[in-house]
Structures are given as structure tokens and as C-alpha cells.
């Protein structure tokens, strides 16, 4: 068994022997050094490290999947799902802007995947055909405030074909004075249609507002479709 130092001396002696013959021993070592000693140049290393960090950031980011339902009475509907359910729905937007906006908002990599949203599209199809009155889907609302979650979930109790008012919603939540806050929470509904904020109107019966698609026009279309108007 060779001690490390002795071994190195052996290798060196062997190389020296070759070198003394003006042969390839020393020449071999210096030729090896000529090829390998310097290593990659600093810029290339830096670039490789940057690419590595980008690649890893991509791997670590959560993934979201989206798909488009093109033909609907209210225009194209974009659906975003994650591993824990439906994350967002947007109506009548531009695909490129939509995907990058969703990516930024959720700090996620957004990938188009028709398969992942097929189940949601099927239920929406049935809804538009009048064959479905409620949706059986997991909704991801964890990023929202507790109050906004409460408001949005409360709208799920309003059946298809019926409407209510912001004031009535506030009263149901035990916060009579908070009709305006309810209105604001509904205006920022990330999953319209599935969370039927369109069924909530102003207390004078006016449609008030709708953030999806073409605004009030889309809200009216949905309520007409449901037979509420």
C-alpha cells in the first residue's frame, strides 16, 4: 500500500525519467497543462452559473396550467388551474398578456395544458347549455384575505336563476355596514362564473358593475342565460 506522498513521488519520478530522455514525460505533463490547467474562461463560467440559477428557479417555481374555452356566449374564457384546484378565470382577454400576468401574479411558471383544464371546460359547457346549476370543482382561494374568501364562498349559496344584493350579502355575513366592502371583495373575484358574483346586484336592482369580459354587458348575459332577468 502506497502512502500518498510516496505515490506522488513515484509518479513524479516516472515522469522525470521520461523527461530526462527528452521524451514525453515532462512533455506530457506540460501538454496536459496546456489543455486543462487554465480551465474554462471566467466569462463562460459566469454565464453557465447564471443559466444554472435560472433553470433552478424555473424548477422551484410552482406550475400553473391554463387552457382556453373559445366558443362561449360571452367570448373566450381562460381557465387557470394548479395542483390544488382552479386558480383563476378570465373572460375575453389576450392570451399572451394573460399568461405573463398570471405568471407574475402567482410567481409561477404558466404552461398551456388543454388536458388539465378539460374537466373545468366540460362543466362550463354544461353550464352554458343549461344542464348544470352548480359546479363541482376545487377552488384555490388561499392567497386571498379571510374576509374576501368568506364573501366569495357565500355567493356559492345563491342558486342559479336567483339574485341578491350587496347589502343582503353583508347582512348574511353579519356585517350590515359592510355592503361596500362586500362589493369590493366581489369586484376582485379571481374565479368569476364558478364563483357567481354576477348574481349580486346593487340594492336598487341595477347591475352596478362586473370586472370580467365586457363588464355589465357580460353580467347581463350571464343573468339572462340563467333566467334571472
Amino acid at each position: 500500500m502506497l502512502d500518498e506522498k510516496i505515490f506522488e513521488q513515484h509518479v513524479a519520478a516516472w515522469l522525470g525519467e521520461e523527461g530526462s530522455k527528452k521524451g514525453e514525460g515532462e512533455g506530457l505533463m506540460s501538454a496536459l497543462d496546456a489543455i486543462y490547467a487554465s480551465g474554462p474562461d471566467a466569462q463562460r463560467t459566469l454565464r453557465a452559473q447564471e443559466e444554472l440559477c435560472m433553470k433552478l428557479a424555473e424548477t422551484r417555481s410552482p406550475r400553473l396550467y391554463y387552457g382556453v374555452m373559445q366558443k362561449t356566449p360571452i367570448g373566450p374564457i381562460f381557465i387557470v388551474v394548479g395542483d390544488r384546484g382552479v386558480v383563476a378565470i378570465e373572460i375575453g382577454v389576450k392570451e399572451a398578456e394573460f399568461a405573463s400576468r398570471v405568471g407574475r401574479k402567482f410567481k409561477a411558471v404558466v404552461v398551456r395544458s388543454p388536458e388539465r383544464v378539460a374537466g373545468v371546460i366540460k362543466q362550463l359547457q354544461e353550464y352554458f347549455e343549461g344542464k348544470r346549476s352548480s359546479f363541482k370543482l376545487n377552488l384555490y382561494l388561499d392567497d386571498l384575505s379571510h374576509f374576501q374568501q368568506q364573501v366569495l364562498l357565500a355567493t356559492l349559496d345563491i342558486p342559479r336563476g336567483q339574485i341578491t344584493t350587496y347589502g343582503e350579502m353583508a347582512r348574511r355575513l353579519g356585517k350590515v355596514q359592510w355592503a361596500r366592502a362586500v362589493g369590493q371583495a366581489l369586484a376582485r373575484n379571481p374565479i368569476p362564473i364558478l364563483i357567481p358574483c354576477h348574481r349580486v346586484l346593487a340594492s336598487d336592482g341595477s347591475l352596478h358593475g362586473y370586472s370580467g369580459g365586457r363588464g355589465i354587458e357580460t353580467k347581463e348575459q350571464l343573468l339572462l342565460l340563467e333566467g334571472a332577468l
Partner: peptide, 23 residues
């Protein structure tokens, strides 16, 4: 990276290999 560069003779796939190693 310098090790991969040496083993892969400075070939351009050293960068891909580095990513694979750390993944």
C-alpha cells in the same frame, strides 16, 4: 463547471451538463 469542462473537453454541452448535475 471547471471539472465538467475538463471531462467534456470544453464542449458546449458542459453548460447543459452543469444544469443536469445540479438538478
Amino acid at each position: 463547471f471547471s471539472y465538467l469542462w475538463r471531462i467534456l473537453n470544453g464542449h458546449e454541452d458542459a453548460e447543459d451538463c452543469l444544469q443536469e448535475v445540479f438538478l
